[in-house]
Amino acid sequence: MASELTIERVLTLVELVPRGRVVSYGDLGGIVGIGPRQVGSFMSQHSDGLPWWRVTNASGDLPRDLLDRARPHWADEGILVKRNGLGCRIADYRADLEALATAYRVRIADTLERTGTAIPHTSNPAARALAAAGITTLEELSEWRRSDVLALHGTGPKALGMLDLALAEAELEWRA
């Protein structure tokens, strides 16, 4: 079960996809640190009022029902449908992912400050490993399995013990 914070992160990122550009579910998942299927699930449940038509599969395609609804938006934004009629050429319309990730980090910082509990400092290697994985709050950490965090280069048993304690104090736990 995803936290409200993770859902908020995905939806914030969708809001930032520029007009006339698209990204894949995997592109968004890579920036947020979750899988593309989770992104798709969140989008199917929470995309009202968002530019959902700017999020496609890795090939730039959408299911027929969504494509039919996306076509007017794409036409308005200058996104052309491929000859096969399944979607757009994602290579031609993909947003600048580096710029998108930077804009996302700036926008989400306020949200994380308001809603997240900072991770305690463990060690420099562990802090770098967690940051590289996009884990900045205990709430985000609780969405990970303990074994997956231990597998991050730089995170050892001592750091994991400190994270165990911090999660328990915040009344959170590792994902099962």
Rank of each mutant, 00 (worst) to 15 (best):
E4D: 15
E8T: 14
E8M: 04
V10R: 01
L13Q: 14
V17I: 13
P18S: 14
R19A: 15
R21H: 13
R21E: 13
V23I: 12
G29L: 10
I31M: 01
I31K: 07
V32I: 09
G33R: 06
G35A: 14
R37C: 07
V39I: 10
S44G: 05
H46E: 15
H46W: 05
S47Q: 04
D48T: 04
L50C: 00
L50R: 00
W53G: 02
V55P: 15
T56A: 09
N57K: 03
A58W: 05
A58G: 11
D61Y: 07
P63I: 12
R64D: 14
D65Q: 13
L66N: 09
L67F: 04
L67V: 03
A70D: 10
A70F: 01
P72R: 00
P72S: 00
H73E: 04
H73Y: 01
W74E: 14
D76V: 01
D76Q: 00
E77G: 06
E77F: 14
R83F: 11
G85F: 10
I90N: 09
D92W: 04
Y93S: 04
A99Q: 15
L100A: 07
T102Y: 08
T102V: 15
Y104A: 15
V106G: 01
V106F: 01
A109L: 13
D110V: 08
D110L: 02
D110P: 00
E113Y: 06
E113A: 10
T115C: 09
A118I: 07
N124V: 13
P125M: 11
P125D: 14
P125W: 05
R128I: 08
R128K: 05
L130E: 05
A133I: 02
G134M: 10
G134F: 07
I135K: 06
L141N: 08
E143A: 12
E143N: 08
W144T: 13
R145N: 12
R146I: 06
R146D: 11
R146M: 15
S147V: 07
V149C: 03
L150K: 13
A151H: 09
A151I: 11
G154F: 00
P157I: 09
P157G: 10
G161Y: 05
L163H: 03
L163A: 14
L163V: 02
D164I: 03
A166I: 00
A166C: 00
L167H: 08
L167T: 02
A168E: 15
A168P: 06
E169R: 04
A170K: 02
E171A: 04
L172S: 07
W174Y: 06
A176Y: 06
